[in-house]
Every structure is written in structure tokens, then in C-alpha cells.
């Protein structure tokens, strides 16, 4: 479970996240949406301690993130918008092994996790392949496998569909659905909603750093059209980025 209480994040004069409180339960499939600059990316970066709150707290599995960053980063896997900038090794197997290696696990355990993580994204037996040779969809799946190898309880994906063609997008989405059915909570940050509302359990829409809508997915279409939150219906080429200065 991820519990956010009165979280505020300021970058100089700008308030990127404004007193947000919310709880994400185990196994939930949550969509966090909102226009560029609405604070959705900044919000999720607090889930595993990549940002330090100006005020407020975040707890993962009942443990404050600030007290045990390693526990938070193990429990909350995160996949970023440009998966090619998250790879640290030249081959698929070596890259997926990076997280488990950092945890100091035994070689047998690392191998088991790499095998399982690659199987979960349909890339079994591709360990020796070079990452440079992969398509965009395959890169996205290797990025997810790298996070899964930490065996997280929650998986956060920031704009996972950027730059993917429709078949690749569908394939990644199928894998996310399967993960969520098996009990991992999946949190997708995106402004590209399209058919995603029908796949998820819950939709959170942010505007100007605050939660504007938080409702079950069945009510989401009405809520989104009623609210003043502008949510682009179709894909845009670039996603949200944070203010540069801290």
C-alpha cells in the first residue's frame, strides 16, 4: 500500500505538488492523468524517494519512505518515459540483472529473477541480445523487466506508451493487465488516455499540483468531461518534464 499524506513539493516559487493525500491499495490498476505540468510526474517520484517532500509524508507498506529508501525502491518499481536512458548495460540479461545485483543477492537468486522478469514480458531466452538491436516496444518491455526483477509490490510507469506504435502499445498494455491480475499494483502516469480507462480500476486526474478527480474508472468518462480538467484525447509526442531547478 502507498499512502500519501498532505504532500507538498515546491521548486522555488512553483508548487509542483499541492497538499495531495491519497492511498493506493495493493493490486489496484490506477491511471494518473492531467495536462503537462500538472505535477503527476513529480508526485509519483515521491513514491520511491526520488524527491524529498517540502512537507507531508509518503509511506510504502506502512514504512515512511524517508526512513528506508532501499525498502521503498524495492517495493516500488519505476519505469521512466525514455526506457533507453534507463539501461545500464549493453545486453538484455546484464541490464535486467542490475537491480538484483545492487541488492547483493546470490547468483542463483539473480538468475531466477532475471528469468522470471523476462518471462513476464515475453522476452525469455533473449538475455544475450544487445539492447541496441531492439524495437521501441521491446525496449519498453525490457525496462519493465528491469523493474520487475526487483520483485516490487507496486509498479509505476511514467508515460510508458510514448513513441510506441499501436501493436507495441497493445502488447505492453496486455503485460500490465496480467501483472495487475497477479496482484502487483500498476500505476500508469499518462496524458494519453484513449482505451486505458477501460483497463484500469481507478482514475486520478491532477490539475495545478492538486488532485482534481479521483474516482472508479466506471465514472471516469463523465467526471473528466464535467471537470475543467483538460485531458487530451489522443497521443502527443512529448510528455511532462519537471522544472529543472531544485
Amino acid at each position: 500500500m502507498i499512502e500519501v499524506q498532505s504532500l507538498t513539493q515546491q521548486f522555488g516559487e512553483t508548487t509542483a505538488v499541492d497538499t495531495v493525500s491519497l492511498t493506493i491499495n495493493d493490486g489496484e490498476f490506477v491511471l494518473i492523468t492531467g495536462p503537462n505540468g500538472s505535477g503527476k510526474t513529480t508526485l509519483v517520484r515521491h513514491f520511491n524517494g526520488l524527491r524529498t517532500p517540502t512537507s507531508g509524508t509518503v509511506q510504502v507498506n506502512a514504512m515512511p519512505v524517508s526512513e528506508d529508501v532501499v525498502a521503498a525502491r524495492t517495493a516500488v518499481g519505476m519505469v521512466f518515459q525514455h526506457p533507453q536512458d534507463g539501461f545500464v548495460a549493453a545486453t538484455i540479461g546484464a541490464d535486467v540483472a542490475f537491480g538484483p545485483e545492487n541488492l547483493g543477492l546470490s547468483h542463483d537468486e539473480i538468475n531466477r529473477r532475471v528469468t522470471n522478469a523476462l518471462a513476464a514480458v515475453n522476452l525469455s531466452d533473449r538475455e544475450p541480445d544487445r539492447i541496441d538491436s531492439l524495437s521501441g516496444g521491446e525496449m519498453a518491455r525490457v525496462g519493465i523487466a528491469g523493474a520487475l526483477a526487483m520483485e516490487p509490490d507496486h509498479l509505476v510507469l511514467d508515460e510508458p506508451f510514448t513513441g510506441l506504435d499501436e501493436p507495441a502499445r497493445q502488447s505492453v498494455l496486455e503485460h500490465l493487465k496480467t501483472l495487475s491480475e497477479r496482484g502487483t499494483s500498476v500505476i500508469v502516469v499518462t496524458h494519453d488516455l484513449r482505451d486505458l480507462i477501460d483497463c484500469c480500476d481507478r482514475v486520478i486526474a491532477m490539475n495545478a499540483g492538486a488532485v482534481a478527480i479521483d474516482c472508479p474508472s466506471t465514472d471516469a468518462r463523465d467526471a473528466l468531461s464535467d471537470a475543467a480538467v483538460y485531458v487530451p484525447p489522443v497521443s502527443e509526442p512529448e510528455g511532462e518534464s519537471e522544472p529543472e531547478s531544485l
Binding site: V70, T74, G104
Partner: peptide, 14 residues
């Protein structure tokens, strides 16, 4: 998990 995370010597974010 606690025993495992204690042994990880995390590289600071900076």
C-alpha cells in the same frame, strides 16, 4: 526485507 535492505550500501543521489 529489513535484513536485506540494511546491507545495501546505497550510492547517494547526488
Amino acid at each position: 526485507m529489513a535484513t536485506q535492505t540494511d546491507s545495501v550500501d546505497l550510492v547517494g543521489d547526488e
